[in-house]
């Protein structure tokens, strides 16, 4: 199983967490993901996901002009539903990761 297959289901939770740390835009999310070691995430793949998250009401967007002038940039913030979803994701992830860790440790 490749990393991208494992990631598929949890990328949404990771984006919720990143956006939850303060309003941010697409490129910055990728940079932050990279900082945390998520170099396997294809950069463009976050946008279809962000579109879906917006449709589901998890995130809200607004446009802000760049300090350097130029075109406007789209910023994301969490909605209330998004915050709740993030808490739920943390709980689910906690349970899953603990179980996986326990299982894999035993093998070693």
């Amino acid at each position: 199983m490749s990393s991208s297959q494992i990631l598929k289901g949890i990328l949404e939770g990771c984006l919720l967490s990143i956006i939850g740390k303060g309003e941010t835009y697409g490129y910055e999310m990728i940079e932050k993901l990279n900082d945390y070691g998520f170099s396997m995430v294809k950069e463009g793949s976050i946008y279809p996901l962000l579109l879906r998250m917006k449709k589901e009401g998890l995130v809200a967007t607004h446009q802000k002009p760049l300090p350097s002038g130029g075109p406007k940039r789209k910023y994301y913030t969490l909605t209330e539903t998004g915050e709740k979803e993030l808490i739920e994701f943390k709980q689910r992830w906690d349970a899953v990761s603990k179980s996986v860790d326990r299982l894999l440790e035993e093998e070693g």
Partner: peptide, 14 residues
């Protein structure tokens, strides 16, 4: 147009 300008911004930075 919204998703295109968002990707434009990303490509520019990238």
């Amino acid at each position: 147009e919204e998703i295109i300008s968002e990707l434009e911004d990303h490509l520019y930075e990238a």
